[in-house]
Design a protein around this nucleic acid. Structure first.
Lengths: 122, 122
DNA sequence: GAGTTTGTTCTACGATGTGTAGAAGAAATC
DNA sequence: GATTTCTTCTACACATCGTAGAACAAACTC
């Protein structure tokens, strides 16, 4: 289970929010500008690079090694990643149906409607 | 997000699997007997107690302080806990509907059937 | 009720993960 | 070739977790 730290999370959020690949410098700047309600921090580029390396090792990030300032992208979309995590959590329990019952009870009506639509009629 | 270590997880699994409250000694013995496919370990009782304290602080475990060998129980059922975790994961993404779409695509047919049944009406 | 047994709390240490970044090395640019 | 830019290596502090001994408290036993 890939559990992320705060900074790792911030970096992933930025990569997910940006369609193009980003350089470490671009990420550092984006972080400094308090991107998503977070407190903007002035980080050293090496800090960002370290985090990117770790995310790469975790399989969440890919880097283009040929382009000179390396460019980084997320391997999966945020939605895929989140859905995958949810599934990982689900399968930790032996009685998945019971878990799903509780889960369905916890989602909003709008989300329930979405689920019905996705699951098709019947 | 309460992420559990291996031993913490083992302890929770035992508490969830046992209807009655358990003492630290009972837990130590249960762990030693390789409960759930795990490698049985001979742990010191203090080790188990430390883990129980930590789980208590995390809000996952409750202890009866009056009974002399303190007895420990899980605060929530495994299913509730798992469903709650899933929901926590879900709400980390801005586009929950998209996540749910991916998630529904990843569950088995049996689980999908369960979901349909649960979502039943309208 | 003093001594022994049993149970709990305190403190601690090693390993791992994460935030942080400087120093050193490699590549591009001038 | 010198300077700038970028990447890798190494490192440190702090938190979490597995692990448990030492010290303290309660209970049981004559």
């Amino acid at each position: 289970m890939a559990t992320l730290g705060d900074l790792e999370r911030t970096v992933m959020d930025l990569l997910w929010a940006t369609p193009e690949a980003m350089t470490a410098n671009a990420l550092r700047d984006a972080i400094a500008e308090a991107p998503l309600g977070e407190v903007g921090r002035e980080l050293a580029v090496t800090t960002v690079l370290t985090v990117l390396s770790r995310l790469e090792k975790k399989g969440l990030v890919e880097r283009e090694r040929d382009s000179r300032p390396h460019r980084y992208t997320s391997v999966t979309s945020r939605e895929d990643h989140t859905a995958e995590l949810m599934h990982e959590v689900l399968v930790t329990a032996p009685d998945r149906e019971a878990v799903l019952a509780r889960f369905v009870g916890s989602v909003s009506e709008a989300e329930a409607k979405t689920l019905r639509k996705l699951l098709g009629g019947s």
